[in-house]
């Protein structure tokens, strides 16, 4: 391997490309192909799995609630992340380090750890319930295992993603622009809305796209914290594997999820170019 990565005397890039192409073909494309094949062939060859989905009002409501939740989580995390990223990009160096450390702490903590934390906090023996009943809300409402708890946890989990996307763009915005606008007579709020906000738009687009897509396919938190009656799409795929063992239907749902995800990417790619999504908005 090392010899081949030698800088100048590589005959061509083939030896460098081959490992990735072979590896991804065998262990990524083939299993992905299996999903497509299963959706079309189990139990019998044909489109009947997709037909079942099309006629299922349950699936339609899952799809609807997945979209609704993903959209809500995206907007909420933008709402929380924007001031955070703004303060980190424009505050003193010490303050920025503090904020970014907090974000990094959350970013690197496993979803399962955070899920467990929310179970304690929102559980019926937890601090939130205790607080509500102390305030006189008796009996305290059930918070855990509702759409609310799943949405809250997912928002919390995805704020770091959003913050990083925003911060990457914001730290490159020259504060002189805003100062120039103010110097030219704009009220600070007006200067923010007409200068800073548009300049930070690429970060908003990137962050929202990433969070929305992640949310569409989220499995762990909705399954563990959400309402069993109000599942998201990834959850019902899991059900097909674990409980009903209906791989044909599970694969078909997967294909729908994949198609939705790809559609979002395609729209992004059409307008902004995929390269930018992972590059943090630059180039």
């Amino acid at each position: 391997m090392k010899l081949r990565t030698s800088p100048v005397f590589v005959e061509g890039p083939m030896p460098l490309i081959a490992p990735a192409v072979m590896f991804l073909s065998l262990f990524f494309l083939v299993p992905l192909g299996y999903v497509v094949w299963m959706s079309l062939s189990q139990p019998v060859i044909g489109l009947q799995n997709f037909g079942r989905l099309l006629n299922s009002s349950l699936f339609a409501s899952v799809l609807y609630s997945t979209f609704k939740t993903a959209l809500l989580v995206t907007l909420l995390s933008l709402l929380f992340a924007y001031p955070l990223a703004y303060a980190a990009a424009n505050g003193s160096k010490r303050f920025a380090t503090f904020l970014l450390t907090v974000v990094a702490l959350s970013f690197w903590t496993s979803y399962l750890v955070r899920t467990y934390a929310w179970m304690v906090i929102l559980g019926n023996q937890g601090p939130v319930t205790a607080l509500l009943s102390w305030l006189g809300w008796d009996p305290a409402p059930k918070i855990l295992f509702t759409t609310f708890s799943a949405t809250l946890a997912m928002t919390h989990a995805l704020i770091p993603f959003m913050t990083m996307s925003l911060f990457a763009v914001m730290k490159r915005i020259d504060p002189l622009y805003v100062r120039a606008a103010e110097n030219l007579g704009a009220h600070p709020l007006r200067a923010f809305v007409s200068v800073y906000l548009p300049l930070s738009a690429p970060g908003i687009v990137n962050g929202c796209t990433l969070v929305f897509i992640t949310c569409l396919g989220f499995y762990v938190m909705p399954v563990l914290l959400g309402s069993p009656r109000d599942q998201m799409i990834a959850g019902i795929i899991g059900d097909q594997i674990e409980q009903t063992l209906d791989f044909g239907l599970g694969s078909a749902i997967s294909i729908v999820l994949l198609a939705l995800t790809l559609a979002v990417y395609a729209v992004y790619n059409r307008f902004f170019g995929l390269d930018r999504l992972w590059a943090g908005g630059d180039r």
Partner: peptide, 19 residues
């Protein structure tokens, strides 16, 4: 191709790998 695993939702791959 290299970026594809980041695009495809993990749950989709889970069912693929399972089979």
């Amino acid at each position: 191709l290299i970026m594809l695993p980041m695009i495809v939702p993990t749950i989709v791959m889970a069912i693929g790998y399972y089979i």
